[in-house]
Design a protein around this nucleic acid. Structure first.
Length: 600
RNA sequence: CCGGGUGUAGCGCAGUUUGGUAGCGCGUCUGCUUUGGGAGCAGAAUGUCGCAGGUUCAAAUCCUGCCACCCGGACCA
C-alpha cells in the first residue's frame, strides 16, 4: 500500500477522549475513530491488526479440532427465557441490548451465545458418537456496558471469539478445557503479549472451574494475586490465602462497654487498645433474588478483613432455592434510602452484633429474618469484641455459643490481600499485579443443556444432558492490550505477528528519482515475497514521515536516503531504534529473515 | 444509576464572569522557498457556538428543559 493513497490521518495532539496510552495512540495514529460511547470504527490499519489476531486465534482453535461457524447476532427472547437468563441479562445485570420488534416480539443483540449454540446442539446432536464437538465463531458482540471506557478495552460492541464444546462426560470436558488452556497460551505468545493465566470466578455464566488470561498492564481493570514460585495466580475476586494470625484478645470477661464514636474498626481498636483481629465486625448486605424477594444478610468477619462481594454473591446465589428463587439479581450494601423500605427502627450502624434482632425488619417485600453467615476468619476467635446492637456500645470478651449463637453458615467470603501467605506454601506471600482480561475459559457442565433440554443418547441407550464448556477471547480487546504493553513516547511498537504491515519504506525526498526508484523496486520485491510493506511516497518532509512511521509502529523501516550513494539503505528497528545501513541487494533477504524469525 | 465536568472549525483550546459583527494554535488549500526527525514566508477557505424553547433592540454569553460525551464511583460471562 502506498501511503499517498491510504486513508491515514494522524493527529499531532492526543484526543481529549482518551486517558490511557493505548487508547490515545490508536486514535492519534489513525487506527480507530469513536462513533458513539463504547462504539468504534476500525479503520484500515486497525482492521488488518484485528484480522491478524483473528487469524492466530483461528489457527490455534482449528489445531485443536474446533470448527468455525457464524451464529446470529439477533437472538429471540424465547431462547433466553429457556435458559433462565432473560431476566438477569435484561434487568439485573442489564447488560443485554434488548428490544421489541414491530410484531411485539422481544429480541436481543447477542452478548454471548450459549443459548443459540445449545439450541443447535439440542437439534443436531443425538448420539454419543457425535461427541465431543467444539464449535466457535469470531464476530461482534454487544453489551450494554453502563460505563464503557478505555477505547476497545471496554466497548459496547466488540470483536470476540467464542467457542462452545459438548461432551459425554466431565472427563472429556476437562480434556478440551486443557486443550484450550494450551491453545490460549499459544495465541497470546504468538500475539506478543505478556500475560498470566489465573484462577477466576465463573460468575453469572455459571459452571465450575474457570480460568482467565490476563495481559499484564497498569491500566488493567482486574487485580491479580500471584506467588513468586509461579504455583498460584488468581483474580482477586476468586483468590484465597491464609489470613494473618489473630492476636490474643486482651479481654477475658464478657461485658458491655460504652465505646463512643467508634463506628469503624480502626477507631474501635484504638479506643479499646485491642488488635483489629480481636474484633468481629458485622456487615449488612441486601440480596435481591429473581423472584424479586429481598433478603438481608449479616456477615460476621474478623475486624482486619474485608468481605469479598463476589464470593458473597456466590454464597447468596447458592441460597436461592431456600427463597423459592432460581438466581440472584443483585447484592448491595443497603444505603439510607434502601433501609427506609424495610427498617422497623433505626439500625445501630457501626455497632451491629451478629445477633442483631429480626425485629429490625418489617415490610412485605422482604424476608422477615436475617440470614446470618460467619467467615472462617471469625469462627475460632475467642473473647472477641463485637457490636452491642446499640449505638456507642460494644461488647468485649465474647465467645461463640456462649454469648452469641454461632451462625449456621460458615463461609469463606474474605478478600485475599497482597502480602497474605499462600495456601499451597505458607512461605510464599501473595504479590499483586493489574491485568486486562483477554480470555476466559469455563467448564459449564450441564447448566444450559439441562435448562434447555439438550440431550444425547449414550452407549446404554439413556438420554442424558450434554456436558458443556465455553471459551472466549476478546479479539479487539487483545489488540489494544498489546499496545498498552508495547509502546514508547513516540508511538506504538507492534509485535511483528500482529503488525498491520511488516515494513515501511520511507522516501525522505520524493523528488529524488533515484530514491523513489530504489524504494519502488524494494516495495515490489518485498510484497512479492509476502512481506507486507508500506511505501511512504507522500510529498512530505522527512521529519513528518519518520514521526508517522514511529507513531504507526511498523516493526521495520527502510529509508532510501543519503546512504543510497553507497548503494545502501538505512534499516531501522522500531522497537529498539537500532539503525544500520544494508546493501541494496541484501535488504530483501535480511528482512525476510527477520520477519520469518519474528513470526516463528 | 449517583456525583463531578465538558460541548465553540477536522484536532487541541480561548471567548461565557460583565450580552454588542466568533477567535487562537495545529491541520487543510494556493504560491514561492526549503528538503533526514512534526519547515519558513505570503495568501485563502472552513462554524446550524450540542438541541429546543424563553428573556432582550441584540444571546456562544442570561433563564428553562432536553441530549451527547468524558472523569470518579457503583456496575462489568
Amino acid at each position: 500500500m502506498r501511503l499517498s493513497q491510504m486513508l491515514l490521518v494522524t493527529l499531532r495532539e492526543d484526543s481529549a477522549e482518551a486517558v490511557i496510552p493505548s487508547h490515545k495512540l490508536l486514535l492519534r495514529a489513525g487506527y480507530i475513530r469513536r462513533i458513539g460511547s463504547g462504539v468504534y470504527a476500525y479503520l484500515p490499519l486497525m482492521w488488518r491488526v484485528l484480522q491478524k489476531v483473528s487469524q492466530i486465534v483461528r489457527e490455534e482453535m482449528n489445531a485443536t479440532g474446533a470448527q468455525e461457524c457464524l451464529l446470529p447476532q439477533l437472538q429471540p427472547s424465547e431462547l433466553w427465557q429457556e435458559s433462565g437468563r432473560w431476566d438477569t441479562y435484561t434487568k439485573a445485570e442489564g447488560i443485554m441490548f434488548a428490544f421489541a420488534d414491530r410484531q411485539g416480539r422481544n429480541v436481543a443483540m447477542g452478548p454471548t451465545h450459549e443459548e443459540v449454540i445449545t439450541a443447535i446442539a439440542r437439534d443436531m446432536v443425538r448420539s454419543y458418537r457425535q461427541l465431543p464437538l467444539h464449535l466457535y465463531q469470531i464476530q461482534n458482540k454487544f453489551r450494554d456496558e453502563i460505563r464503557p471506557r478505555f477505547g476497545l478495552l471496554r466497548g459496547r460492541e466488540f470483536i470476540m471469539k467464542d467457542g462452545y464444546s459438548f461432551h459425554t462426560d466431565p472427563e472429556s470436558l476437562k480434556e478440551t478445557y486443557q486443550d484450550m488452556d494450551k491453545a490460549y497460551r499459544r495465541m497470546l505468545e504468538r500475539s506478543g503479549a505478556e500475560y498470566r493465566a489465573v484462577e477466576a470466578d465463573s460468575g453469572a455464566i455459571g459452571g465450575s472451574g474457570s480460568q482467565e488470561f490476563m495481559v499484564l498492564a497498569e491500566a488493567g481493570e482486574d487485580e491479580v494475586l500471584y506467588t513468586e514460585d509461579g504455583q498460584y495466580a488468581a483474580n482477586v475476586e476468586k483468590a484465597i490465602s491464609l489470613p494473618p494470625d489473630a492476636e490474643t484478645s486482651p479481654f477475658s470477661q464478657y461485658e458491655k462497654r460504652e465505646t463512643p464514636n467508634t463506628p469503624t474498626i480502626a477507631s474501635l481498636a484504638k479506643f479499646l487498645k485491642c488488635p483489629p483481629t480481636a474484633i468481629v465486625k458485622n456487615v449488612l448486605y441486601e440480596a435481591v433474588y429473581d423472584n424479586n424477594k429481598a433478603v438481608l444478610v449479616i456477615v460476621s468477619i474478623r475486624g482486619d478483613q474485608d468481605v469479598n462481594e463476589v464470593k458473597l454473591q456466590n454464597e447468596m446465589a447458592k441460597l436461592a432455592p431456600s427463597f423459592e428463587a432460581k438466581g440472584l439479581l443483585e447484592l448491595t450494601v443497603p444505603d439510607a434510602e434502601a433501609q427506609k423500605k424495610w427498617a422497623a427502627k433505626p439500625l445501630p450502624l457501626g455497632y451491629m452484633g451478629p445477633d442483631l434482632s429480626d425485629d429490625f425488619i418489617s415490610g412485605k417485600e422482604i424476608h422477615p429474618q436475617f440470614v446470618r453467615m460467619v467467615d472462617e476468619t471469625a469462627v475460632d476467635l475467642e473473647n472477641f469484641v463485637t457490636g452491642a446492637n446499640e449505638t456507642d456500645y460494644h461488647v468485649v470478651g465474647a465467645n461463640w455459643d456462649k454469648d452469641f449463637k454461632k451462625p449456621g453458615i460458615v463461609v469463606d467470603v474474605r478478600t485475599a490481600m497482597v502480602g497474605d501467605r499462600a495456601v499451597h506454601d505458607n512461605s510464599q506471600t501473595l504479590q499483586t499485579a493489574r491485568g486486562i482480561e483477554v480470555g476466559h475459559i469455563f467448564q459449564l457442565g450441564t447448566k444450559y443443556s439441562e435448562a434447555m433440554g439438550a440431550t444425547y443418547t449414550n452407549e446404554n441407550g439413556e438420554e442424558v444432558p450434554l456436558v458443556m464448556g465455553c471459551y472466549g477471547v476478546g479479539v479487539s480487546r487483545l489488540a489494544q492490550a498489546v499496545v498498552e504493553q508495547s509502546h514508547d513516547k513516540d508511538g506504538i511498537i507492534w509485535p511483528v505477528a500482529i503488525a498491520p504491515y511488516h515494513v515501511i519504506i520511507v522516501v525522505p525526498n520524493v523528488s529524488d528519482d533515484k530514491a523513489m526508484n530504489a524504494a519502488q523496486s524494494l516495495y515490489d520485491e518485498l510484497n512479492a515475497l509476502g512481506i507486507e510493506t508500506l511505501l511512504d511516497d507522500r510529498d512530505e518532509r522527512a521529519g513528518v514521515k519518520f514521526k508517522d512511521a514511529d507513531l504507526l509502529g511498523i516493526p521495520y523501516r527502510i529509508v532510501t536516503g543519503r546512504s543510497l550513494k553507497q548503494g545502501k539503505v538505512e534499516v531501522v528497528q522500531r522497537a529498539t531504534k537500532e539503525a544500520q545501513d544494508i546493501a541494496l541487494d541484501e535488504v530483501i533477504t535480511t528482512l525476510k529473515q527477520w520477519v520469518d524469525e519474528a513470526i516463528g
